[in-house]
Write a protein that binds this DNA or RNA. Structure first.
Lengths: 202, 202
DNA sequence: CATTTTTCCTATCAGTTGATAGCCTCTCGG
DNA sequence: CCGAGAGGCTATCAACTGATAGGAAAAATG
């Protein structure tokens, strides 16, 4: 069912159930023997994106290591995972679709994801490893950079997600670190953490 | 007509012409005595966003000063301007709306905007002031951060756009500078350039 | 005041939307 | 061989979409 990447390209409202059905090779009413409604299709896609992401940030918070290294590893794992998805998460978070509809649970998941990410950044600020930047702002910056990466790659999965993921992680950590000389060690420590974070999403 | 910020909140497809008409206090068919089609409304909003942005980046390229200072000033002016708009540019660039429809001209404007921005970053890389980062990647990062800022502020104009604008500009320049000790002088030089860049958009 | 022009209205259109009802056709355990 | 059930189909629905036609009202012009 993941072929419903049309949501991403044209947005939730811009994609009809007939479009989706045609993309998966069935007729429109047949969709309703798999999902009770159009919203449910979006909810399933959102879940497939949010739940692994939540598992990753939880893992990053539980691991040992400096906050910068853990954030770097989380970013690498997150961006790699999102760029590998067969669909494109852009359209999911653009509209106020999340707020307006009966997607309460997905909105809650996203909020929790944001909270935990903000907390990890906050650890870095408290320890002095990061500049005294507002953790919420930094979290927003990460969201923006990640969505942009998905936009840039287009509708198909990226051939080399790890490359882009590293670039984004480096960019963010470089902007946040109080002492840039720590970038090298952070990258090194991150590389060791990435597998643990990535595998947290089953 | 700028009250059509509904496009931003619900996306182009998610907003009906009746919604727009109701928001501005007229009936739906009356819209068509102001605009020939729904696309034309979006085109007008896109123009109002893109043309000043294009004027700003041209000004930043023409000014004297180090690339970092000019990029910093451009970012401050850009983000301030976008956050001050009475509508929310988010939805404009999310869908493939730009590609799919008869918005060729707006797509061209956006491409030119990207090219010029990339060129300014490239100047910084060539001069050694910036790290040897791919200018296109940096430009994408800027786009992502800017759109995220609009998302965060919500549908209404920001009360204090300059604050957010400075934060974003600092974030980007910090991530790009080869020598972070240059951040202070860059900020200072940028402050002197901002008025010239901002006023370029008439 | 008369007239012209601009702006808005009501009425209506054909096409598309998400969704439901009811029938058909495989597959497979017994 | 058979009955069950999962998954597909056609046909159809009411609601809504963007857009057009033609007339009324209001504002500007003389």
């Amino acid at each position: 069912m993941e072929a419903s990447r049309l949501f991403a390209a044209r947005g939730f409202h811009g994609t009809s159930t007939r479009d989706i059905a045609a993309a998966v090779g069935i007729r429109q009413p047949t969709l309703y023997s798999h999902f009770p409604s159009k919203h449910a299709i979006l909810a399933a896609l959102l879940d497939a994106d949010l739940r692994p992401a939540l598992a990753r940030v939880r893992a990053a918070l539980d691991l040992d290591g400096s906050p910068a290294a853990r954030l770097h590893a989380l970013l690498v794992a997150d961006v790699s995972a999102i760029l590998s998805l067969p669909y494109d998460v852009r359209g999911f978070y653009n509209d106020e679709v999340l707020e307006l509809l009966e997607l309460d649970e997905q909105a809650r998941l996203r909020e929790e994801l944001h909270d935990l990410t903000t907390r990890l950044i906050g650890l870095g600020v408290e320890s002095g490893e990061f500049l005294a930047e507002d953790p919420s702002f930094a979290r927003g910056a990460i969201t923006g950079l990640t969505l942009q990466a998905v936009s840039d790659r287009g509708p198909d999965p990226s051939p080399d997600p790890a490359h882009t993921a590293l670039r984004i992680a480096d960019f963010v950590v470089r902007a946040l670190l109080a002492d840039r000389r720590r970038l090298g060690p952070v990258q090194k420590a991150s590389a060791a953490l990435v597998p643990a974070v990535a595998s947290a999403a089953e």
